[in-house]
């Protein structure tokens, strides 16, 4: 009976010792927005997005100019052209179509932003996991809004940005 108690006491001691060991898990932090703002690939993604938006803008502008030219022509000939009402209606439909195009363009810009941001963050994620494993982090938080304070030693954002920058300019391995 006393052996049983001794074994039980030993188990309790072991369990008590194990608790602090588990509590030592390191928590780190990665700021995703900084990765996008400060890494080379993040900056390239911002430039890509800006060019994409410019291209959309160029397309819309061209179409708007075409419609405006048509409208001007119609105004000039409205008094003499018997077909003017039909042309007016066609022009109205074109304006409607243009409004829809503007909405679609805005939507596509938003989707392109998400695609590029996701691409960059996937790469950053792969780097983050390696750094976390190397440095013994058990959890990496990525939501800055959920954090009141973080010590500099737990913030691996700079490391991830640096590693990402290094990897992004390194040539890929030669294929066999």
């Amino acid at each position: 009976m006393s052996r049983c108690f001794a074994a039980l006491a030993a188990l309790i001691c072991l369990a008590a010792l194990a608790v602090p060991a588990r509590a030592e898990g390191k928590v780190g932090f990665l700021h995703p927005q900084r990765v996008l703002n400060e890494s080379k690939i993040g900056k390239a993604a911002q430039e890509d997005l800006a060019r994409f938006a410019q291209e959309k803008d160029r397309v819309l502008r061209t179409r708007t100019q075409e419609i405006q030219a048509e409208q001007k022509k119609l105004q000039e000939t409205a008094a003499t052209d018997p077909d003017a009402p039909r042309k007016q209606e066609a022009l109205r439909l074109k304006y409607q179509q243009q409004d829809r195009l503007i909405q679609e363009s805005n939507e596509e810009i938003r989707m392109e932003e998400q695609r590029l941001a996701r691409y960059v963050m996937q790469k950053a994620d792969a780097v983050m996991k390696q750094i976390a494993a190397q440095q013994g982090f058990t959890i990496i938080l990525t939501d800055p809004e959920a954090i009141g304070y973080i010590d500099a030693s737990a913030d691996i954002t700079d490391q991830v940005i640096r590693a990402l920058d290094q990897a992004s300019v390194a040539p890929p391995p030669k294929k066999k």
Partner: peptide
């Protein structure tokens, strides 16, 4: 000694850009 900011530690990681089984 342990308080070295994480940002200053040297980092060596495998490139996230290399694909495992690239289709060529």
């Amino acid at each position: 000694q342990a308080a070295v900011p994480a940002s200053a530690r040297p980092v060596t990681v495998a490139s996230p850009f290399v694909q495992r089984n690239p289709e060529i």
